[in-house]
Write a protein that binds this DNA or RNA. Structure first.
Lengths: 190, 190
DNA sequence: TTGGCAATTTACTAACTAGTAAGTAAAATA
DNA sequence: TATTTTACTTACTAGTTAGTAAATTGCCAA
């Protein structure tokens, strides 16, 4: 059982990395199998279909995010630090072989992924946006963030630019991504 | 020759739409062939490889953008109107069956497209960013845009959020995209 | 020690992929 | 009118895809 859990987790880890690197339709069972040194039927044992594998990846990603934001080490942070933590997630993705945001990757492939994955993508995106909007509102009430209009509107701008920024950085380099983050900090804090 | 041009142009048009809808690896020669009522060998006659087809699509897209921005009807516009024109391009994509930006689509698939397409993607992205940065700088000098820091930095924020906003809208709806555009207008003009 | 279960491999399939070679009908050219 | 070129079609290939059924291995409990 412990060995099976290892394989299953290894498959999930690799599938997640591949989705952020090549997209859901950009990798195959053969990629995973050869990388892990197993046969592709082994993957089908743990995940009956590619749709199920993709769904499990997004579900785990969502669970992890909820675990983080509900953990005191993030939850009890002041708004500025919360936002820096959030930006840090994306900076880490960029540093990790130029990965892009899982939500952005799935949205780009939205019209060529199974329906259940589209639903997962919507749920994930909603969760990211809700947390960000709440954090922005908290910071504005505390007088540390400065912006006009609905917090959800500002949150959608920030989230979309982080997603887009990771993609832009693939074409124009990491500096482009950091420029996005720095510009946001200036816009919000000044 | 006129008939050939028609087929060739129809292939390019459809390939461009498919790349913005499903991504470069999300469509096949069979899609194009059946839609146009020709055999897939006919596509290979006009474009020897899928790589060549994709390259031609991006090249035409780049040429079209340069033609637009150098045309007096855009070039002689005041900065605010120029920016509105630019935003309008993206709004039109969203309205056209939820297409995403070609550059964003290719960047997401960056690690699973041929090298020549990566080069085309870089060139396209550079051209979009340069024009936007120049327009922002022009507007700031004219006193109509208000932002701090390097214009290229602000341009990378706006471009990445437009790209990301079109993707976000697939998951959360068109309102999300318009929220991004409206927030930018407020941030810049107030 | 034996029966059973979990995890895996072997061996396969059907569908789809881009790409090719050879042939054809019609139009342009000489 | 003869020849060449353009714009295709027919018919095919080799490789890849997700997915499946059946056999096999290794551990664990009765």
């Amino acid at each position: 059982m412990s060995k099976s859990s290892n394989t299953k987790r290894a498959i999930l880890n690799l599938a997640e990395a591949l989705m952020q690197d090549k997209g859901f339709n950009g990798f195959s069972y053969a990629h995973i199998a050869s990388e892990l040194g197993v046969k592709n039927a082994a993957i089908h044992y743990h995940f009956p279909s590619k749709e199920a594998l993709g769904g499990a990846v997004v579900q785990r990603y969502r669970d992890r995010f909820q675990l983080w934001v509900n953990n005191p080490s993030v939850k009890d942070l002041p708004p500025v630090k919360k936002l820096e933590w959030f930006f840090g997630i994306y900076s880490d993705m960029r540093a990790d072989k130029g990965k892009v945001c899982l939500a952005g990757s799935l949205e780009t492939e939205f019209n060529v992924i199974p329906e259940s994955l589209r639903a997962q993508t919507k749920a994930l995106t909603n969760e990211l946006l809700s947390w960000l909007a709440a954090t922005l509102e908290e910071g504005r009430r505390a007088g540390v963030f400065h912006f006009t209009g609905d917090p959800t509107r500002k949150a959608s701008l920030i989230l979309s630019s982080l997603q887009g920024g990771l993609q832009l950085a693939r074409a124009l380099g990491t500096d482009m991504f950091h420029a996005v983050v720095e510009q946001h900090k200036q816009d919000l804090l000044v």
